[in-house]
Amino acid sequence: MSLKRVHFLTLSITLMLALLLLNLPAGASTRLKLGFGGVFLPLFGLGAAAQSFVDRAAWSAVPRRSLISEIERLQKDNAQLQFEVAQGNVARQERDRLAQDLAWVRKSPWKLKPARVIGREPTTWWRTVQIDFGARDGARVNQSVLTPGGIVGRINAVGYDRSQVALVGDVDCGLAVIVAETRDNGIIKGPQTSAEYGLMEMSLLQNSPQLMAGHAVVTSGLGGVFPKGIPVGRVADTRPMEAGLFTTARVQLGANLNRLEEVWILL
């Protein structure tokens, strides 16, 4: 077989393989992808172990005096938080009682599970992360992912022991939002290249002259993916569009998407 024929054969076989892979049904493609990604599981495990070893090593280098003062500070914070939880419980019981009196549907509080970010998107054109929370932990597609700062994104692919999260600003993670102060509805949708700096374009559904920088933005619950009331961020600036018919605002996200280490999954 001549050299040129080998080249021609390799080229044809590889292009056919690529064509076959790209034309697989979505379900089969996802399963194949998650299966192939399993090759990297030992490295993700090793990475997590190395990270925890480094964290412990860093703690062992902290002087005892600092640790004691840190414990004292945490004990004070803990006591204060316990008071606040007790107050919150009383308020919730009162709200439930009133809701029952008014025959409102009782809203269950959010149930959250923690997860660790084990990998980031290897390309520059998507905004996703991998978390160590998969189907065995109860992960499902479209579950909301949060940090104490605010919404992070949604789960868009689930494997046995890891999931892929589409971050806010990715084409797969649109948000229906509402401005808490003015009750204006808007949407944040991807792809957004300014997302690198935590700024997102929010298109409002109507003109809103009352909207000001600093107003809080939360999820509106429309669209059925994200529940209502999850903090998103604060309005950074606004500008009118389409001869004043609509308003566009930039929102500074509450969560820092560039420094995600641990996230919470809304069950």
Binding site: L17, A18, L34, F36, A166
Partner: peptide
């Protein structure tokens, strides 16, 4: 295929450019 398996890319989309 390794890169695609860890990315939001469709599985197999990087095969042609790499190859």
């Amino acid at each position: 295929l390794g890169v695609d398996s860890l990315s939001a890319n469709r599985f197999g989309v990087s095969v042609v450019p790499f190859f």
